[in-house]
């Protein structure tokens, strides 16, 4: 590890802590009231799930329309676990989230192996069907509380927990994408035949990428349960999956920072549009159409916002000014 890398880490960690401290302070002095705090937490969950979908769609290039299903599996697993056991808060939280992710990942594996033989629209339809199966199953099973929903989940997630969970997920995704495994996943999106011809086991990496994506969606679902304290199967419908898809397209397929931006924006827009719920999807569609006309690859395209680069540019400018 050279010095540049270490200094980059230090800068990023400092920035993360500073942002956290500012928002935390604003919450403490009630500038951000409970209402906005709630939106921020939901935005965090949106970021996690949308980022996981970006891995499957933006990087791996597979059309996945059932992420609400993986989320539901993660949410119910984590919630049922926390209700069943009696352990300290953080142990239950961490174990619950991991368990939720693992179970969602297992389902990802089960449907990924046959489904990823399909391409494009067909894969979209299969994943969509999967999401609906999960929702209907949750509605009709007794141990999940059925249509009445699952109640009595402890509230373990607040701003602090969700903030650091988001940081963890984003850091994980960045590190994962910028490795040989990430490059293999990217190459499949670019050209599957060429990838295979230079020694990438494409089937393995397609399933692997999909399972990792399902795992993270499951963790995001778990966090949702621990925040809302009640899980309603009707929430995890097809439109919920589509919302994440919209976030990914808006932010840019293959840009994690774009996803963060779009998820934050959509979470707030969502709240303001609550009173005119029937118009919400119309507005989404319009936003997408306008975006497709003016910037067809999303807000950030494939680019990533980088604090280090921004700082470097800034310091260069000041150096030049000083020299003058």
């Amino acid at each position: 590890m050279d010095k540049k890398v270490i200094s980059g880490y230090i800068k990023n960690i400092t920035a993360i802590m500073v942002v956290y401290a500012i928002i935390f302070y604003l919450i403490q002095i009630k500038v951000i009231n409970n209402y906005y705090n709630g939106i921020l937490i939901l935005a965090g969950i949106y970021i996690i799930v949308a980022a996981s979908l970006n891995l499957a769609t933006g990087y791996l290039g597979q059309l996945a329309l059932g992420h609400a299903g993986f989320m539901a599996i993660g949410a119910y697993t984590a919630a049922l676990f926390a209700i069943a056991v009696d352990l300290p808060k953080y142990v239950e939280l961490v174990a619950g989230l991991i368990l939720g992710g693992v179970v969602a990942g297992i389902f990802g594996l089960i449907i990924g192996i046959p489904a990823l033989r399909l391409r494009g629209d067909y894969l979209g339809i299969v994943t969509l069907g999967f999401g609906e199966i999960i929702r209907i199953a949750l509605l009709n099973l007794s141990f999940t509380g059925g249509a009445a929903g699952l109640k009595g989940i402890p509230r373990y997630v607040n701003f602090t927990e969700i903030y650091f969970l988001v940081v963890l997920v984003i850091a994980f995704l960045f590190a994962f994408i910028r490795s040989r495994h990430g490059r293999a996943i990217l190459s499949i999106k670019e050209d599957e035949i060429a990838a295979e011809s230079v020694g990438i086991p494409t089937t393995f990496y397609k399933v692997y990428g999909f399972v990792v994506s399902a795992f993270i969606a499951g963790v995001g679902g778990g966090a949702l349960g621990f925040y809302q304290r009640i899980l309603d199967p009707k929430k995890f419908n097809f439109m919920f999956s589509v919302e994440f898809f919209i976030i990914v397209v808006l932010g840019g397929m293959g840009s994690i920072t774009g996803t963060i931006l779009a998820a934050l924006a959509l979470a707030f827009i969502n709240e303001f549009l609550y009173s005119i719920d029937e118009l919400r999807l119309v507005i989404y569609a319009l936003t997408l159409i306008i975006l497709m006309i003016f910037k067809s690859d999303g807000l950030l395209g494939r680019k990533e916002f980088s604090l280090i680069k921004l700082l470097n540019r800034f310091s260069k400018k000041t150096k030049i000014e000083n020299a003058d």
Partner: peptide, 20 residues
Amino acid sequence: RLFKELSVIDNIKIAFHKDM
């Protein structure tokens, strides 16, 4: 059949995947 949206060096690095 290049990996069009990736840089030249990443195209090569992907081919080294099996050596890592």
